[in-house]
Design a protein around this nucleic acid. Structure first.
Lengths: 173, 173
DNA sequence: GTCATATGTTTAGGTAGTCGAAATACTTCG
DNA sequence: CGAAGTATTTCGACTACCTAAACATATGAC
């Protein structure tokens, strides 16, 4: 990935990229909306990373750390982010160098390293994220409780569909 | 990007990564659902790319081409994907070498190159994508027309919020 | 206690996708 | 025709990531 300097603000995402062009597609409006949403969500993530002058992976790591109940280690984080532990070392190196993070050996199990966000970094991540999350929260004001129940049910079902698709083994031999 | 061989199936996404851990967050359930959805959607995209043995960028390019009404050129595609024209040349090189794509000089404006997907590639992309999209379509069966209207309204609003956030200039000096 | 095995982290070396800047090819307009 | 503009590619560099192997510590068997 080209560090924190993407020139354009768009992001590539195959499940939410192309508009349907008369090709007999005819999918549900919700389905199209979902693809647009995915694309916008990815863009927002990239924008957030840009604002904080980090690459997306590093920001995702900070985000996990900022909201984790107990201190995480590189291994746990690497599996959450879907990268190898080796790559995680680089991420932590970068974040530590930038002053966002501290490595601390676990005293009980000295194999382990605990990653502690500096207070300023924690606050910055939470503050930036909150701006976005508050915008999303505000949307719900326009809906009745009944509607909100349906929306929540739909979002859960869509998430589940994506997950099922992602976790399925290749269906074609 | 590490070509088409990501080992884990998770993807990093700062807007949809960490669960809230007692930190006074208290955002709307829809907001949390939205973050989970974003994460799942990114994962599904990566899974799709893996299935088709392409990296995400290349697949996104094919997806645009497959659904475009008129043949696209490298410049247009690069701006849609958010990469530079130089990077686009590599993408097209890869796709052409893999037999998914043909370069064809435009006869009217000979500066332009038109990117034509081979019929087999077009079919493969549409087939794989349809599997996912059909799953998403099926979800709507469980909702009444009224509920669906609310859902669509919500999805549009959320997309808009993400877009506004993504396109905003840095709010903090 | 010591050895074998397992787990967490880092190091070393290599690959691939992207970038910025310059070169090339063509078009359009004065 | 020449100048300026646009589309694409080439070139050299950077960096995030990977695999494999090394290192450090823990745990359990004997």
């Amino acid at each position: 990935m080209a560090s924190s300097s993407r020139s354009a603000h768009q992001e590539q995402d195959a499940t939410s990229s192309a508009p349907p062009a008369g090709h007999g597609a005819a999918h549900a409006p919700e389905t199209h909306a979902l693809r647009a949403l995915g694309s916008a969500s990815t863009d927002a993530s990239a924008a957030l990373a840009r604002r904080m002058a980090m690459n997306p992976t590093d920001l995702a790591a900070m985000s996990h750390i900022a909201y984790a109940a107990d201190p995480l280690g590189p291994r746990e984080l690497s599996s959450r982010l879907g990268i190898t532990p080796a790559a995680m070392t680089d991420v932590v190196d970068r974040l530590e160098a930038a002053g966002h993070l501290l490595r601390e050996r676990d005293t009980n199990d000295r194999r382990r390293v605990r990653l502690l966000a500096t207070e300023s970094a924690n606050e910055e991540v939470r503050r930036e994220l909150r701006e976005l999350l508050d915008m999303l929260d505000a949307i719900t004001d326009d809906f009745t409780p009944t509607e909100r129940a349906a929306i929540q049910r739909y979002l859960a079902a869509a998430t589940d569909a994506y997950r099922r698709y992602a976790e399925n083994p290749e269906p074609n031999p």
